[in-house]
Amino acid sequence: MDARTRILSRIGHALKERPKALLPEHPHAPPSANPLDLFLKRLAENGAEGHLLGEERARKLLGELSQGLPGAAYGRGVPASFRLLPELPPEEAPLGVSWALFAVAETGTVALSSEDGRRAQLLPPVHLVLVEEGRVYPSLLEALLDLKALPSALGLHSGPSKSADIGQVMVKGVHGPGRLVVAVLQGSW
């Protein structure tokens, strides 16, 4: 008998007399008004920066973030119109720009797919995430119930990298980006 068989048979034996517990249904998501306000509020509370912008102003924000930088690392899904700086490898880039799969208002979260990349989301000290207005879900439950296929890896980012492991003092940018900027793009893309 291999380890698998032995473990499963011990479990079967352990559960023989145990009454089975029922699986509760998921709760109903509370009806929510426009999730965008909540999303921006939560981002700010998480220590991130959030903006609701049209394309023109979004490009302006990117221009401001790019000031004086030699280049940026881009996620695959970032449209050409947002690639203002020359592309650099993520290990060297001072700025990473990603295109989010979706966002969640209640937790102030952007969801980043491995199809967009991984290094640009993690290695540069500043991370700009672009997300379409129509992809902001009010709650995590709605987002997960709506998720049809999962990529190899999905990263839920809800703020800058942080740690209080040194003397209980909060330090930002420990391993991941110390600054997270989210641009919610108005209109359809």
């Binding site: 998480n46 937790t107 491995s114 999962l150 190899s152 890896a153 839920l156 800058p160 991941g176």
Partner: peptide, 19 residues
Amino acid sequence: RLSTYVSLIQGPAKEGEEG
């Protein structure tokens, strides 16, 4: 409300992907 990072890992990188 949520940890800063949550990784949902489905498997190895697909062709041409990082990971």
